[in-house]
Every structure is written in structure tokens, then in C-alpha cells.
Design a protein around this nucleic acid. Structure first.
Lengths: 135, 135
DNA sequence: AGTAAACGTGTAATAACATTACACGGGTGC
DNA sequence: GCACCCGTGTAATGTTATTACACGTTTACT
């Protein structure tokens, strides 16, 4: 982080980022590859390379529990220290939020133990209000 | 959850659980398979089936960011509401802890939004004190 | 005892996710 | 010019997880 707010995106990075921003929810690398076949993508590596950079720039997050990727909700806004995700197992929708207090508590835990934290993963799985209401 | 504290383990489940408790740190399903070849294991599915049950019983946790599994530190003790993991990227050691306050905050967030939480994943990646000291 | 249901097991094949290795091309700066 | 860095293209391979099918054991009900 401490990244450029508007890093220059290469052609492939822009295509991958476009796929993710157009999508309603998270996409796997191979789903992105399929979307971009018409744009000339041929191999998984083209997607993974772009994703690596986009994640590094903070424009995209990886969802570990899904092996998938989402565009950051706060693009252009580097205000949050770290992100958490509520993932609906019924409709696949993902809500990104910034539980700063909870993250502070976790960060304190690590500092108390001399653990040098580099990445925090918080993912909440369940059923969103809309899907729960729909039974 | 609300599981038996001492569920009966089948032969395969006991073998897989044994591999994980003997191991220093997390193991992938295929690493477990390799360990158990001499005990007659032949296919990944034998491992995955046992792991599914062990996770269901609360005896084993899956580490999403590692695609690996660890024996629960609190085996036989169902006291914690949910677990978090500090994972050292240098030595691979995993420390399990129960950040109840942080989890309460996250749970409140979901309740405020009518999100029915079923699973919480909290994984902290970084470098443990020992490895940091060793440079 | 007979038998159906539930569960565990064994095996093979395949699907899904991710990386390594190698070659090439376009810029930048000496 | 040429060395260096970065992005790209392609193929092959490695790693993680699931589906499908067959069979055996236990449980529980009649």
C-alpha cells in the first residue's frame, strides 16, 4: 500500500479491472479469463499477472474463502486501514466494510506478541437480509 | 457446532486427526494423504471426507488463506465462540486465539444488517516474534 | 431374521485453481 | 548501441478439490 491513488494500468490490467467492476459480485480468475477471451486473453497467467498488480495497487481484493476476486468498493479512496467482507452464500453478493475497531483489537493482539502483521483477512459467510427474507 | 465434545471418530477420521495433531503446523490435504499412504490411503477423497467431519466436529480448522488444515488448539474444550489465526509466513507456525471482543463487533455489524452469520474467518499473516528476531 | 436407510469406504476420473519456464517486445537511461 | 526493467504470449505443469459409481457395515424398525 501507500500506493498511488491512480496507478497507470496496462492494457491487460485495465481489461481485468473492467471485468471485475462490471461484474455484480466476485469472479474467479478463470471466469475472468473466459470473459476476456474475445479481448484476446488466452492463458490463466495473463489474468493472474494482472490480478497481482491490481491487488498490490489496492484496486482489487482477493477473497480467500472463495478463491475469487472483487473490485474494491472504495476505489480511489485509500481511507480504510483494512477491509472485511460479508459474503452471502445464497446470492453470492459481497459487501465490503471497514471494521476499524475490530481491526484495532486484532492489531493490538499482534503487537502485544511481537507479531509483525502484513495482511489481515476477515471474511464473514452467511445469508444476506434479502435472501433470508425470501426464504 | 453445539457438537459432541468427544464424537466417535472412524478409522479414517482418527488417522487424519492423528496426522494433524502430530504435525507442528498446518498440513494440506495432499500432505496428509502422503503421510497416510502407509496406512492404506490411496485417494484425496479419503482425506477430504475425514476433514469435512473433523471440521464439522470442531476438532480441525481450515485455514482459507493457506488451503490447509490445523488441529484445534482447544480440543475437548468448546469454550471459544470462534477462532482467529496468526500465521507466520517465515516458519509456518500458526497460533490460534479467540478475539471475542473483535468477533462481537463483527457479529453486531452483521446483526444490524440482518445478515445471518454462519462462519467467521479471521486470518492474520505476518512474521512471528521469533522469526523477526532471527532476521 | 429380514430389510431399508444412513453412513462410511474404495477407486477412478475429472474439474478448478495456480505456478513455473522460456521467449519476445517496448521503453528508459547510460 | 546496449543493458536493464517491465509487460506480454504461450505451453506445460503443479496443486487443490469434486463428481460419479460401487460396495460394505451398522442401525433400527418390523
Amino acid at each position: 500500500m501507500t500506493a498511488h491513488v491512480h496507478p497507470h494500468l496496462t492494457k491487460n490490467q485495465a481489461l481485468v479491472f473492467g471485468s471485475l467492476t462490471e461484474a455484480e459480485g466476485p469472479l474467479t480468475a478463470y471466469a475472468i479469463l473466459d470473459h476476456l477471451r474475445d479481448s484476446g486473453f488466452r492463458a490463466p497467467l495473463q489474468v493472474y499477472r494482472a490480478l497481482d498488480k491490481l491487488v498490490e495497487y489496492g484496486l482489487v481484493h482477493r477473497l480467500e474463502s472463495l478463491n475469487a476476486f472483487v473490485a474494491c468498493s472504495h476505489s480511489g479512496c485509500a481511507s480504510h486501514k483494512s477491509a472485511a467482507f460479508a459474503i452471502c452464500d445464497t446470492c453470492g453478493q459481497v459487501v465490503e466494510f471497514s471494521p476499524d475497531e475490530a481491526i484495532d483489537l486484532l492489531t493490538n493482539w499482534t503487537q502485544d506478541r511481537g507479531f509483525q502483521l502484513s495482511k489481515t483477512t476477515i471474511e464473514l459467510r452467511g445469508v444476506c437480509q434479502k435472501c433470508a427474507a425470501a426464504n
